[in-house]
Design a protein around this nucleic acid. Sequence first.
DNA 1: GCCAACGTTGGC
DNA 2: GCCAACGTTGGC
Length: 141
Amino acid sequence: MAKQYWLMKSEPDVYGWDNLVQDGSGIWDGVRNHSAKLNMQAMQVGDEALFYHSNIGKECVGIMKITEAAFPDPTAEEGSPWVVVRVEPGRALAHPVTLKAIKADPKLADMDLVRLSRLSVGRVTPDEWKHILKRSEQPEG
DNA sequence: GCCAACGTTGGC
DNA sequence: GCCAACGTTGGC
């Protein structure tokens, strides 16, 4: 299957991009929403995901690689449906792409991030992905 | 199976 | 701190 793109949210005061860079690798645990779970189950090794800082910053800050497909969340009860994926930091964006900029951009305003503001793991289309990366090349992208 | 109440998330 | 959106729970 072709490479897929995702966006994953975390509050930076709980676990931010810098934490992931320091750790070198991490599992994306604690997701307790079925839509988000389905998205994680659709992820494949080699897919890429934006790391989005929710609440504080409200911006995409880096690119992660999915390095292991979904497996049961070790922080969830035995027998529960929740899963995690393993991720590694790829590279930081040259300039963060803010929610404000995304909302203001007609090409991006239809993203899961905007339409489903509470969804913590969303899909990003290849077009949206390219566009965000392009915007990240310049300040106030 | 419907719906009101409540809790959580996340932007503002 | 407030509120909108959404999911879950529980009474009926």
